[in-house]
Design a protein around this nucleic acid. Sequence first.
DNA 1: TTGTTAGTGTGTCATCTGACACATTTTTTT
DNA 2: AAAAAAATGTGTCAGATGACACACTAACAA
Lengths: 191, 191
Amino acid sequence: MEALKNFFSSVEHLSSKDMDFLLSKLESKKVAKGTALFELGEMVKDIYFLEDGILHRFNYNDLGEQKTLSLHESPRFCTDLESFSKAKKSTESCVAMTDCTLYRLSKTEYNSLVNSNIRWSNFVKKITEISLILELNETKNRANKPIKERYLDLVNRQPRILQNVSLQIIASYLGTSRETLHRIRRSVHAA
Amino acid sequence: MEALKNFFSSVEHLSSKDMDFLLSKLESKKVAKGTALFELGEMVKDIYFLEDGILHRFNYNDLGEQKTLSLHESPRFCTDLESFSKAKKSTESCVAMTDCTLYRLSKTEYNSLVNSNIRWSNFVKKITEISLILELNETKNRANKPIKERYLDLVNRQPRILQNVSLQIIASYLGTSRETLHRIRRSVHAA
DNA sequence: TTGTTAGTGTGTCATCTGACACATTTTTTT
DNA sequence: AAAAAAATGTGTCAGATGACACACTAACAA
């Protein structure tokens, strides 16, 4: 629960009463490695805060090959916002890559929060902005960089991901083949 | 003004009174090709709606080379949200690639809107979500595709950009060199 | 006109990458 | 333990790309 509290505090200072109110909206949840938080073709009805663990978001291309869209490392929020807020079927799945500790905010609780008063509405708006900007910056940072740099960024910034995710999934995440990632990894370790 | 009204209507149905109220917050503005809407190192104090025209967002890498971050085609909203909402200096510049028709929403008006009542707060939240999700989807769509596909997507989806933006800026946008883009373009036209 | 500059076209070459084939290792199942 | 399946390691090769050099063209200024 520490990571979640820290996250909320970093968004805005909250009285302990406000913090308790906010936490009362969320439900604690532990899931084992391999569990799906949401799945392709279904509507996403929850927002998750990833307190501890790693999540894998992916879909499939024309050839039926699995394509990694993102790898999330705790602490951070996670949902398919497009599916969640527009009530559309999701185009991706999200699966735990490790045992995970999560906090779940249901759509019902989300709506009651957003519609309760303007302060909470603006608080949620801030979190949404922060989370989307984070993901956008991460995505743009990888784009237009050679694969080797993308890999080294991962090594430096998110070593936990390297330790817990298979080579082929990381390769897909970095936009390359498993063979190429293997060669890059070998060349880096040799040096 | 049509594009702006259509955009607002697509977000949520608005009474003509509400629409007028909203429009009264925005200031019409025409700028000539080459005009900067905001610049690297400054704080971004406005949100723009691009009614007509094309915008170029860019910064510079370690070697001092200009790097295109995005090319915006009307109609759409445009700002550096990170700078705007966190009052941080922007890390990029935004310049008109054509003469542009814009509507400007100042930070003052934005704040008064967001804090006026919960309905407007949630309306603005929706627009923020829609705009960020759009940009995220655009970015992810380009990522991990061969350059040729990125170019063809541009040809099919945003031909106006090809007609109004120089080859080297498009090359930078697509994450390649001007020479490579030139060869791709030649091979496409030959076919 | 002339000169200057920015933008674009093109050839060459080293390097990176993807695709394929197959060996080896690790994990899972029986 | 044995068999099967999944994941990873490796060689080869064709094709894509970046870097560099230089020619050509267009736009603009003197």
